[in-house]
Every structure is written in C-alpha cells, then in structure tokens.
Design a protein around this nucleic acid. Structure first.
Lengths: 298, 298
DNA sequence: TCTCAGTGATACACACTGAGTATGAATAGC
DNA sequence: GCTATTCATACTCAGTGTGTATCACTGAGA
C-alpha cells in the first residue's frame, strides 16, 4: 500500500467508474483495475462492489475513503512544508533582548514578524548583552537585540542597527517647572541638578553610558541618588518624588500620576539599538527575520 | 515522494547514519543514499548536512521530520482501519426502537454495544413498528427494535427475540391495599376494577394487546379511563390518583411519590421484544450488533 | 430475441526504477 | 602517513507498474 494506490482508490471511489478514474489518473483502465485489486488483496478487505455494469463502494470502502483522503491530503502537503521550512517560513526563531528593548521596539518588531511569518514560533527571552554574546556563541539563540556598545563588536558576530530611540526626561511635580509641563519639553540644564533615579551600571551598561554622555555634554558627572533595576520601579520612584530619570520615549505610554514626561531641548540623547547574530549557513528563520528588517515597516 | 521515501528519510533522520539506517530498512547503503538524494531533489530542499564522516539534519529537515512522521504514522494505520471497518468494528449502526424499549432494554443494549465496539457510531431514532418496516425496506436503518407482533413477520425481514420484559402494576395510594404495598405484589383481580390509565392502541399496538390479553385472562375487557401517549405522563397521572396502569418492570426505577410499583401474582404478562433487520451482504456494523446479541451479557 | 454499446477483467510485452554489488574518495584518529 | 570508516558513484538485474490488445458479460433498444 503506497500513496499511488491510495490516490487510485480515491479516484475510483469518486468516479465509481474504472475507465473515467483511469483517465483522471492519466493511465489506462486495465492496470488501474489490477492495482485496486492488489490493494484490496493486500488489505484483505473488499473495497468495491463490482458488477459488469457498475461499481460501488462497500461499507468498509466508504469508511476507508475518509481516512485515506485524510492521509493523502496531509501527504500532499509535505513538499510544500519542506519548501516553506527551507525558506524560513516555518520553524522557530529564538530571540533574546535587553529589557530596555522590550518597551517599544520589541513588541512592534515581533508583531511585524509574526504577521509576515505566522508559522514561525518566536521564542523570546530577556538577557543582558553579555548573556546574549554567550548564547549566540553556544547556538542557544538565533539573534539578540542589544544596545549598541561603544566597544567593538565581537568579530564572530554580525550586527545591524535598528531605529534608535530618543530619551525623554521623566520628572515629578516637585522638579518640573510649570511652564515645562505646559510645553511638554524642558532644557536639560533646568533639571540637571535634580537627583537622578537610575539603573546601576551593570544592569544596563550601554544605556547607563548614553545617559552619562548626556551629563558629560553639560559638563556634569552622572550621579545616581537612587538605584533601581526595573524600569517600572524607576518611574514609580520618580512619581513618588524621589528624583528625575531619563527613559526611552516609548515609555511615555506608561503614565503615572505625579510623573511627567518631558522632551529634552538641545542635544538629544538616543538609545542605539541593534540586532546581533552569528552568521552561518542553514538558519532559515533567522534569514527571514533579517529580511524583515530590510523591509520598510509600511 | 512516496511512503517508502518518507520511511527511509525517517530512518536516516533517526540514525543519522546511512549504513545503520539501511540496515534497519533491510537494504544496503548505496540505494538508500540515492533515494534520499532523489527525495531532496524532488522537494527542492536539502534535508541533511553530509560530511564524509557524519550526517545531521538541516533545520528544514528537522521541521519536516515532525510532519513526515505524522503522515507515516497515519498511513500505517490505514490497513488496520480497513480491516476493522470490514469487521464491523468501525462505522455506523442506525438503530430504530419503539418507545417502550427505550426504558430498559435499549440503554443496556446500546451500552454493551458501545463498550464492545467503541468506534461504531450508534445512530438511534424512535419509531413505531410500521415506520421501522418501511425504513428497513428503504435501507434507512440497519436494525429496529419492536414489540413482537402476533401477526407474521414480513418475509423479507429477519428477527431475533430479545429478553422479554415482565409488566408490573403501578397504582396510587387510593387503589393500593396496604398489605399489597407491604408485600410489593398484588393479585391482579384486586386492582382489575380500578380505572386504567393507558396508551391509545395506535401508539403502541403490541403493548396494548399484551395488556388486553391480561384483562381477557381474567374475563374482563380492557377499558381505558384516561389516555396518554407518553410513559412519564401515564405514571404521573397514576401518581395523581387517576387510576392504575401496567408498565415494564424496568420503569420501577422511575419513582414518583404517590405511585407504587407492584408485581403481579398469577399469570404474568410480558412484553416480548425483538430485533428486526433485513438480511443482506455488506452490513458489517449490523453483523457486529447481531453477534453481540449472541454473546452472553456476562 | 437478437444486436450492440459499454464496462470491467485478462493476457502479454516492455520500460522504468528501486535494490544489490563493487568500488571510489575523503575524512578523522592513531 | 597510514588505516578504518563513511558516504558517493558506477553498473547490473529483477520486479513491477503501465500500455496495448482482447475477452466476457450486462443491459437497453430494435
């Protein structure tokens, strides 16, 4: 019993006429009759009632038809599945990201990817840049999203810039001049003296450095008055009036009473985000992902 | 791409070694290599990474393996399905029954059948004897359960007796002597005078006649004081004190305050139930059903 | 009742392909 | 550098699936 015989059985069952079924199968009638008979013998089951003038399914034949159709349909999908898998339209993309990315860029990116490649399972995991370098080397992830480090990239890894994210200030009532709140923006110098609520450097070194650069541009050293390791906590502490902070603009969606998001006038600090991956053969899902990055987001 | 190639692919994917895979497939290595290569070409997809020393699945190959396994497993079930369908272990049994049968015999019978043949869908429909004769003739049902008529059976139909069901009296407080209630049984003569709640003859002619025979045995004519066309209604009316009735013993499970079920002393009327069907070839589910009737119910 | 069109079955020949055997080529380990 | 191992290649052969020709039977219409 092979797929050819199943196909022939279905044709005869649908036509109930050996001649027409043979025609549909692009063969002649005699070998088709022989083949069906051989099928019946190998199964030990009569599938058709035959008279000299007509053919009809037996009860068992009718039941078998359903199951045979099912198998044939699935079998005929197999070549397409193989091609789609090879083209990176199926499978799995294991993607790591630094926590900052999860607030704005990641959701959009993953959304676009899932729309474009609905049959690729996206396996997301948060990890620091260093963890991502390791994971890539060990082949545990396919790509990572990190904040572009000043230091040179590892030579074995490829990278591509993603849209950079501007930083905005988040300030509590206490530190926000009413005119700045009204304008929605502020000169950095007017809030530079305020105590800073921020990550310890090891939690988000590249992010930390971007903010440190901003302070340096105004001739100041970055001094953290209150540390927190989660963005939500930082904003909460700002809302509680403990100080100001600098967050990606996409965080403005997360409103908190007592905290105001203010654009910065003058030199705007930005978070430069990029994708990293290990070049190599046979990473179809990764290829799909990178192709998506080249596609305009419409 | 046929099942043979799928089987070969799975063997190589599992062994990751052409030699061992060939051994498992009871063939030699060279044709296996050729076959896999041909498979890859027909799919247009590379399924294996090959070096001179080792074989491994490509990403697409790994994805395809899951789907190929699925198809192969289902395909390998097909012969068994055909055999089971031919043996009447799969498919459908369209069974009609007269309403009286639904209270005792039918549930047990269907239960046993479903236990013995879980993959046969049982399609049940209530119908009078006459409707069943018609339906059998038209091939709309496979078998029917009726009350054995006195008249001869239709010659084209076969039949077999089922365990007969004794009738018991159901009487309200008003008509039940306290000693009978205590004993759980009564001489029919003591309640024969009570008004009778019963079916009109056309609803259940054979049942009606069985009860009429009982009355005749005591030299009385059956006289119905209150008609109802459903068993539940009859028992409800009895419970309400409108009269007595005679019901299959299995109805005693349906207790109703105010109504008492009493065995009848002396000549016991019984309902003779039987299965009818139209003999013919290629009715595997029917054959299973009839075989079950020969099997002691354990 | 006879004829004929139409259907599935049978007989036989042939080409293709799937499997076997023999062998080659390249790699990894000693 | 040698050897064992492993996959690839070349060639042959048998089996089987297919085509052509034909038969046997049925049922409808003259």
């Amino acid at each position: 019993m092979d797929l050819r015989q199943i196909r022939q059985f279905i044709a005869v069952a649908e036509e109930l006429h050996f001649g027409r079924a043979a025609q549909r199968l692009n063969m002649t009638q005699p070998p088709l009759s022989m083949s069906i008979r051989a099928l019946e013998e190998s199964l030990g089951v009569q599938l058709f009632h035959r008279t000299r003038k007509s053919v009809s399914l037996t009860t068992a034949g009718a039941i078998w038809l359903d199951h045979a159709r099912q198998v044939l349909t699935e079998a005929e999908r197999l070549p397409a599945i193989a091609r789609r898998a090879a083209r990176g339209e199926m499978g799995e993309l294991r993607l790591a990201f630094v926590s900052i990315a999860s607030y704005s860029l990641l959701p959009k990116l993953v959304r676009r990817f899932r729309d474009a490649f609905p049959d690729v399972r996206v396996d997301l995991r948060e990890a620091t840049s260093d963890m991502q370098f390791e994971a890539l080397a060990r082949g545990e992830i396919d790509a990572g999203i990190i904040i572009r480090p000043d230091e040179a990239f590892r030579p074995s890894l490829s990278h591509r810039a993603l849209p950079s994210e501007p930083l905005v200030a988040v300030v509590p009532d206490r530190w926000a001049p009413p005119d700045a709140i009204a304008a929605g923006s502020v000169d950095f110098e007017r809030i530079a003296e305020a105590p800073l609520v921020f990550f310890p450097r090891h939690v988000a070194p590249a992010y930390y450095d971007a903010v440190a650069d901003l302070y340096a541009a105004y001739g100041r050293a970055l001094r953290i008055h209150q540390e927190a390791i989660q963005m939500q906590t930082i904003i909460g502490l700002v809302a509680a009036g403990l100080g100001i902070s600098l967050v990606p603009r996409s965080m403005t969606g997360m409103s908190r009473s007592g905290a105001h998001y203010l654009e910065l006038r003058g030199p705007q600090p930005r978070i430069d985000v990029c994708v990293i991956w290990k070049d190599g053969p046979d990473q179809p899902a990764l290829t799909s992902f990178l192709a998506l990055l080249d596609t305009p987001s419409a």
